[in-house]
Design a protein around this nucleic acid. Structure first.
Lengths: 213, 213
DNA sequence: CCATGAGTTGACCGACCGGTCGACTCACAA
DNA sequence: TTGTGAGTCGACCGGTCGGTCAACTCATGG
């Protein structure tokens, strides 16, 4: 366990208030490394906040994690996920857009830091969900929401006759799982290209409607 | 971060030698919780080994992690993965067998401990691969091997005419990614049924051969 | 003019971390 | 009988962990 990040203080952060500085620093560190590996002291140093101030805003590290999850989920929902699931795009193209966005994001991160951070939610889910029920539930809720966006998209594609009838709810979950899996594999290879190559196959996933007899 | 496991010493371990006791205890704890969360002290207590003895066999926690990965990969290769990829089984049935095995394993673990441990390799990959290049490479090698089994299976299915021609190498990776993703999602829901429901769709994944013109 | 309270500061806490080490046991070979 | 070395033992190390706290600043409103 060597070389910590050498980033000291992103300029942009100078303007933010204390709470936001803590939040965005924690998010960056948790995403780039892991929850357990990042200590409050380090977060405070990078965010240029004193320990006492930290605990003024967040009662515990667990609460910080929850806030980070909410913050990231929010950015997601209003950021590239919103763009990808743009209702003006043909439904099936949204999937390609999403994969593209994931690829470019991971690639940018790797070019910048040398390693693929993967998906914050996936990372936290595997690291923490066996140990902290509250955090697990929170992450799960984020996945449920993401899955719902897939679900809408598939239903719309079916309505437009672009897709043979299938179990859109289950298939939506399968697609989310696949996306997470692809990012996991890419991270373990430390190679974003995996996302670009495997990603598009997300459109081939199908779970049939339960037989109605 | 509360309630540790209450398992104290599985009977079977009484018979094992010191090194094996450390190894199997560490494996269980790393799998059930996480790498960072499990300390050497705790491993020693459960394995009934003194700290000094531990460091007689493993130079560091990192070395222990490597040994655990190798040990688990070995058990895998000779255990249910070997069964699933049994050459006597029709190729495409092997995939169902694999999904079934994953489901029952996760379900058994959850019934026993109350939570889904997920895949040890996936867990470690997301937790450690951004921080420890050596461990990352080791895990990646395990994934490469697993991917190769899928690859063989797909080639065999194509040879038998059970499958339209496709890019079997890429599709094999996609299937592995999907399996990991499904387990990730199931873990974040703490519900093994996710594996049973989403798993079989692994057979629908397809990556076409690159156009040859 | 002062009271209030949100926000800041940094010293401090006990617990725990991974890891070290010198003393010890004991089976076995010379 | 004695030397050797693999394995055992547990006290100990410096450092870090998440978290506490009393003292402080300072803008605001009465």
């Amino acid at each position: 366990m060597t070389n910590r990040s050498t980033i000291i203080l992103p300029m942009q952060q100078q303007a933010l208030d204390t709470r936001s500085r803590i939040l965005s620093t924690a998010r960056e560190l948790f995403h780039g490394r892991s929850y357990a590996d990042v200590g409050i002291k380090e977060i405070c140093e990078i965010a240029q906040v004193q320990k006492g101030s930290f605990y003024h805003f967040f009662p515990s590290k667990q609460d910080l994690a929850m806030a980070v999850i909410d913050d990231m989920a929010d950015d997601w929902a209003h950021g590239f996920v919103a763009e990808a699931f743009d209702r003006d795009l043909p439904p099936l193209e949204r999937l390609d857009y999403l994969v593209d966005a994931a690829y470019y994001w991971q690639k940018a991160a790797k070019d910048l830091e040398g390693r693929m951070p993967g998906c914050l939610f996936g990372n936290l889910a595997l690291e923490i969900s066996t140990r902290d029920e509250v955090i697990r539930a929170r992450i799960n809720a984020v996945f449920e929401k993401a899955s719902a966006r897939f679900h809408e998209t598939l239903d719309e594609a079916m309505d437009l006759g672009l897709l043979e009838p299938l179990d859109s709810g289950a298939t939506a979950q399968a697609m989310l799982a696949y996306l997470e899996g692809v990012i996991l594999l890419a991270k373990s290879r430390n190679d974003p290209e995996v996302v670009r190559i495997l990603g598009p196959a997300i459109k081939t996933l199908r779970i049939e409607l339960p037989a109605t007899n």
